[in-house]
């Protein structure tokens, strides 16, 4: 690829020397319940999703609300490679070489109004193309949200590719969020709506089980999921007995810990 690391980009301060998983791993082991709850289901069924044309509605407290075609959103964006560790709430992790641009650049473009505090996101809901949504595993459409400062953080990415290729359906094509210091489910896939607002957004997993999935969902080895420990994680692609200790904020503490100063991370899991 030869993209290498981006000089001066904040990603550079993040965990160094991460060895990406194979394209095979990344595209065949996914949680995307709209296509089924099995890890292989998304790879099997996500190609049913029509990716073009694609548009994203940006609304709420922004200066330039509207429904934007994907081409318009990508116009003038510097697509860069970011190699991030993805830590799933199920206690496994992978390393993924994303291609994308900072969410902040899009938000700045549409103009966030003063008084806004949160950003809400919504995944496409297409019963004809998503065989998994006929079952009410979650209250579809899938929704996620970030605090505005989290959304504006330079680590927060809108990804369009992996390994220099366009995203595949199972990875959240054509446009997905990547928030590397939070559990993977925060990084919502196939985004069709971005809403800037005052209130803390509805988030699907918190709605399904608020005791187990909080709004913040920062990677935190000290706060267990009620049903399993988060202290360690299985390393996908690392052989039969690979486990590593989970890092606070998934290893991105230097960049993001200040966002949570004074916040009780046990209560705000």
């Amino acid at each position: 690829l030869g993209l290498g690391s981006m000089g001066g980009s904040p990603a550079e301060a993040a965990p160094q020397g991460l060895k990406p998983n194979s394209f095979e791993d990344i595209t065949n082991y996914n949680n995307y319940y709209e296509f089924g709850t099995g890890k292989e289901d998304p790879a099997r069924y996500a190609d049913a999703l029509t990716l073009a044309p694609w548009s994203v509605t940006i609304d709420g407290m922004v200066d330039k609300p509207g429904t934007y075609g994907l081409e318009d959103i990508l116009k003038g964006k510097q697509i860069e490679e970011r190699i991030y560790r993805l830590r799933c709430v199920e206690a496994w992790s992978m390393v993924i070489p994303w291609n994308g641009f900072e969410l902040a650049s899009l938000l700045k473009e549409v103009g966030v109004q003063s008084g806004a505090k949160y950003v809400a996101f919504e995944t496409a809901l297409r019963p004809d193309e998503m065989r998994g949504v006929s079952r009410r595993v979650l209250d579809w459409p899938y929704r996620e949200g970030l605090r505005l400062d989290e959304a504006m953080h330079p680590l927060t990415l809108l990804a369009t590719g992996v390994y220099g290729r366009d995203l595949l359906g199972q990875n959240g094509a054509p446009l997905r969020l990547v928030v590397p210091w939070k559990y993977g489910f925060k990084s919502i896939k196939s985004i069709v709506r971005i809403t800037v607002q005052k209130e803390q957004p509805f988030t699907s997993w918190k709605d399904a089980n608020h005791r187990e999935y909080g709004f913040y969902s920062n990677v935190n080895p000290e706060v267990s999921h009620p049903r399993w420990s988060q202290a360690t994680e299985r390393v996908i692609g690392g052989g039969l007995r690979s486990r590593r200790e989970t890092d606070m904020f998934n290893g991105y503490g230097e960049e993001v810990a200040h966002l949570y100063k004074g916040l009780d991370l046990k209560a705000n899991y």
Binding site: Y33, T37, E90, R135, R136, V137, L138, W205, A208, N209, R227
Partner: peptide, 9 residues
Amino acid sequence: VILVKGFQL
């Protein structure tokens, strides 16, 4: 039943 995430059949 209780180990899966969400409501699964």
